[in-house]
Design a protein around this nucleic acid. Sequence first.
DNA 1: GTCATAATGACAGTCGACTGTCAATTAAAC
DNA 2: GTTTAATTGACAGTCGACTGTCATTATGAC
Lengths: 166, 166
Amino acid sequence: MPRTHESHALTDLILEIFRLNGHLLTAGDQLMEPLGLTSARWQVLGAIDLADRSLSVAQIGRRMGLARQSVQRTVNDLERLGFITLEANPDHARARLVVLTEKARSALKEVDGVQAAWSGALAEGLSAERLTEAAGLLHDLTERLTASGGRARSASKPISMTPKGN
Amino acid sequence: MPRTHESHALTDLILEIFRLNGHLLTAGDQLMEPLGLTSARWQVLGAIDLADRSLSVAQIGRRMGLARQSVQRTVNDLERLGFITLEANPDHARARLVVLTEKARSALKEVDGVQAAWSGALAEGLSAERLTEAAGLLHDLTERLTASGGRARSASKPISMTPKGN
DNA sequence: GTCATAATGACAGTCGACTGTCAATTAAAC
DNA sequence: GTTTAATTGACAGTCGACTGTCATTATGAC
């Protein structure tokens, strides 16, 4: 199988994705470090906030495309840090509900402002059209991968950005 | 700070990057699972192969943009699995050289063929121009992030693709 | 040549993802 | 109403990245 032009271009693109992904993760962590949050922790809080009600660990996992075991670990950390409490679930004796504390709500508000400023600065001077076109291409690639392939290790590795927007 | 159009478009793009990154990692791992390799292991072998000589653990780390401790861990695994041997380094009493075994060389050859077929199939029907344009945009974003920001968690998370090409 | 500094491997520990397994619980089938 | 299947939390273990620290070894300055 000879390498086509497209194949080469795709390989380059993939390398850029890996590189940028790493930098974005780092940037996200730095953005909320002062608040005592990490990307993973923030994602969990965001999922609950977005749902507008309390959720069980397994529900959060499904919404985020993660294994429930991964979420469990993060939830344990968040409870220890006072961002959430675990309350009785009338619908399920074992599956307690993860509830945001006031500390979590104010942290989320804080992050939202910081993230808006950050993404605005990073996007400055770039045309919305180019950004959208690139996003569309990546979306296509994801579809091709998931269509032919099997389940992914993680449905998404979304981190820092947009707890609500999406 | 009001959210601009660009800011929104960027946020969408970022989410696509996280998603696709996860899928690509999975695909890469699946691609070389039959050979007993993982993305991280393959990367280390690829770095040595590309250098065309034996390298110390720290040298590999620098070339891959990883902490030498991460490489050390992988190298230990690779030695246990018979993909590499650690040989005396005339230039440094402690820093032994990581040397590829025949097993590693044949595995690398195998992966190269499989990866070519895989990326060819994934790229089919996509224009090289679109791919290149997107790669350029991501490259710009990486530059903006690294210019203003500090060091990244990992200079690159390259995995599966192109041990040699690059 | 000696001495301070940098590089190196090794070790311990953190973080975030995963898989697999188990017992308890809920829900569904019959 | 029982029995079976699916869901759930908890626990143990793997993998890949990170940081920090230590003693050893090279290297450079003087």
